[in-house]
Amino acid sequence: MARAGRGDRRAASILVERHTDKIYAVCFRTLRSRPAAEDAAQETFLRLWKNASKWRPKGAKFETWLYRVAMNICLDQLRKAKREAPEESAPEQADEAPRQDDQLFAAERRLAIDEALEALPDRQRAAINLCHYQELSNIEAADIMGVSVDALESLLARGRRGLRDRLIPIREALTGRMSDDGTAQHN
């Protein structure tokens, strides 16, 4: 980071290579839209470049800081989008996989789960995103979201409860052919 701040393009390239996938993933899972996630990821790195020269290794962990920037951008975008267009939009599917048999079932299941995630309040979804998908510790996730660990746990509990209330009633339909790793299987 310090080298990128001094104008070292190679160092900047390493940062991009190392962190883009994670930042894009967190943006996509928070925003549920590919173009919006791309914009948010790019904006995150623009802010990184802007602040690179001021970076000091002490203090916040770099990755935590980067996640916090990304999360703030995403939540700002969501707030702005809600102000401008309050009507709901369907969640976007990331992959256009061939729709054949099991893949069709898997796609339908994924859609139901995506819709359940989409229906969660933004901050609950963000908490699940950071802890479950990004596998950050509760302390890191709380730090990124600017809340206490207790508040984070409350967000996680409410988020998971919301998902459970929506998904558990249709568990039979969703898990009929699902393996442990979430891939479709024949009975």
Partner: peptide
């Protein structure tokens, strides 16, 4: 069961040219 559902949600794939675009933004 809920963990299984979360695992089955759509996995984001980084667009192939996103890294290039981000790198291009470096000044």
């Amino acid at each position: 069961a809920l963990d299984g559902f979360l695992r089955a949600a759509t996995a984001p794939k980084t667009p192939h040219d996103l890294k290039n675009r981000i790198e291009a933004g470096y000044r």
